[in-house]
Write a protein that binds this DNA or RNA. Sequence first.
RNA 1: GCCGACGUAGCUCAGCUGGUAGAGCAGCUGAUUCGUAAUCAGCAGGUCACGGGUUCGAAUCCCGUCGUCGGCUCCA
Length: 631
Amino acid sequence: MEDERKTPEMRAQMTDVERLRHSTAHVLATAILKIWPEAQFAAGPPVDNGFYYDVDLPHRISPDDFEKIEAEMKKEIKANHPFERMEVSRHEALELGKKGRLAALTDRDQPSKFKLDIIENIPTDEKISLYRNGDFIDLCAGAHVMRTGNIGAFRLTSVASAYYKDDEKNPQLQRVYGTAFKTKKELDEHFAMLEEAKKRDHRKLGKELEIYIIDEDVGPGLPLWLPRGAAIIEELEKLAKETEFAAGYQRVRTVNIARERLYKKSGHLPYYAESMFPPMELSEDVEAIKRDELTREESDIASTVQRSNSSTKYYLKAMNCPHHHKLFAAVPRSYRDLPLRLAEYGFCHRYEQSGELFGLMRVRSMQMNDAHLYMTPEQFGAEFNAVNEMYLNYFKLFGLDKYLMRFSTHDPTKLGQKFVDESELWKQTEEMTRRVLKDSGINYVEVPNEAAFYGPKIDVQVWSVIGREFTIATNQVDFAQPRLLNLVYKDRDNTEKTPLCIHRAPLGTHERFIGFLIEHYAGNFPLWLSPEQVRILTITDEPQLLDYSRAILNELRGHQVRAEIDTSTDKINGKIQRAEQMKVHTMFVIGKRDMEASAVSVRLHGRGNLGAKSRGEAIADILSSIKERRA
RNA sequence: GCCGACGUAGCUCAGCUGGUAGAGCAGCUGAUUCGUAAUCAGCAGGUCACGGGUUCGAAUCCCGUCGUCGGCUCCA
């Protein structure tokens, strides 16, 4: 973890509301100390939508304590103490810390251990400052509001645990979260907004709209798709297949398991074993194992993996690349075959830590919009660019505009350790990637030292409705695996060369992408993606009317439209209510009047009654909207 | 995986400090034949996540397991 200390310049740039929240964190600490004087504090920064303060305390703070703590905070705000800044020498700061006087109201028996540690990490050339409000003195670089009374409206929101300095090896502290605004009105609006956001949560909508389930008997993180969810999957795959076909991709199919050997050879196993499902051991092909003794090199790669003399192991695949690489290697390749683009909606399984699972967004089984592109170095720029274009076209189609492209590069000092030792290739591919990004005028951030071990990558970050950040799509350069798996093509000059590989997944995985789309559209999918595109609602269930309605239903289905008919004995209002609740995109309301005019009354979800249209026109509208994938 | 909270009918939830479960919706049956967000009535539905323990008695208290949620670490 890098040092995330803010520079004095960054402090000066804190927004007013950040100052306010940071100051509220100090007031929170003040209040906690009044109740539990032995509390030890670590860091208390402002964050998106609020602030937190990490505290080490034998008492387990629970939401039941919030009222008491907030009451103390209110007293401190009412007292309207000024926030006084004091600059001290390193020595003075350390002395105060030893007396337990930092992040405290008085001297104490125990030193302010976390604060002492933080002082140790402040660069020697940087000034050390304290902030004081009332009796509370804290080691803090600022910035703060003038007085505690400037804090307008605040509320404690939750308590969770967090590792000190965000490191799993450090002890866990209690992290008390809160939020603060200048006015009560803003605070109320903030909570109203959160309530709205919860209604869009894909886990809630996914259940209500019957898109997917996660069943305990099947297992955590293993979503099953109901027909409505499967319909969305089919549409996404259709989109991907059409797009990729037009872009010169070829589809392949691979299996879901492979022998341990494959992952040993690809070099994945030592790195990925942790995040793979444990292997299945089969004893039947021991002979095969004996025949296929590994070379010394392969054994070295696999040295961390235990070998068995009596059985062979099969792994559920966690990634598609090794399988695709095998397909590349299966046929002699000429430079004339390149670029070769192999695509598959591959099923992958990863054993994610239980605490990481999150609805559809973080699962253990996933279907990936995967493809591997093999090319010569000269072809790289054009291929990478084309992949990027594909992304942007998809995003335009989905009206996705709040995303961040994160360009991860290597750190030259870590060549040969964290990154494969190919200085020139790193430089080349990174420069080519950077140019593609610049030329297309996309906003992106460059993050050094975050690349994959086999090459630089671009991740597209989006945010779930409750503010969690996710990588929705990825575009990675790989110049290591082709070598590990001995992938070669015969070049013009009759020599064998190793291709470059691009690993890309513009639509990410079905799970995460659909989870995201549910929230993005708040469940109101465009017609082409709608699980149920048209529902026919009959005013009565008289036989003639049913015949007419069923004929329309059959016509729609004949055109592959996902249409249903509601022939229940409810009144029309009841039928509409149910269709609206399921967010059915288009409703055809059909009564006697419509039948006699050979028409239907069209009603759109959320937009109400559009009035009668001729049967032919209404159906033609549906078909063209679907065909064009209109928003 | 770690810390904390939670887990009652298909869904949303009620069930006070322990006295062996209740509503609405959905479902089923019947009646109603109705023009743009809920027609009426009846019926049925629960080893209160699971397993132990305390107790005369546990949905309620304790322990463990599983799962979910909020975070942390991690990631498509």
